[in-house]
Amino acid sequence: VQRGPVKPSPGEHRLQYAYSLWFSRRTPGNKTSSTNYEQNIKLVGSFCSVEQFWALYSHCVRPCDLSGHSDFHLFKEGIKPMWEHDANKGGGKWIVRLKKGLASRCWENLILAMLGEQFMVGEEICGAVVSIRFQEDIISIWNKTANDQATTNRIRDTLRRVLNLPPNTIMEYKTHNDSLKDNSSF
């Protein structure tokens, strides 16, 4: 597992950005707080090429096979998957709630679009999260500037296209500032 700055090996296909994959799981009975959240989140590895991504991804459990309250977070290297991080604090996320059984396919479609720069919003994308919960699963994509509506609309339209979900699928946008206030998204 590569930690710290990553480099592509000869012959590999470089990505526009380097990314880090994180994993977190809520331990039963543990009260949620920002401190607990930060302690629970573990770096799995970092990559900067297509080949390095597949090598890491192939070793990870698919989201649908996870149990309990677990999350994968795939963020640009240097951005911590926390609302309070400088790159995130003025931002927000699009949220899509999924019926059980769809998370693995949707997560793969989402992250391939992100790694392949399909969102076409410059530096705006921060990362993506898949959250495994009891009744439903949730995927989200985080961007830097919550009040830039042209950008958030563009992200929503690309997300809808790459996830290939029914047209009536509900997509919600939530600013991290609101999440911090209501503490709802742990």
């Binding site: 012959g11 296909h13 470089r14 526009q16 597949w54 090598a55 192939s58 720069e117």
Partner: peptide, 21 residues
């Protein structure tokens, strides 16, 4: 500079490259 863009199919093809193992 130019952005490095990959379509989904291209990324899927590279999944089977020997370099990705």
């Amino acid at each position: 500079g130019t952005r490095i863009i990959y379509e989904r199919n291209k990324l899927m093809q590279m999944r089977n490259s020997p370099l990705a193992r």
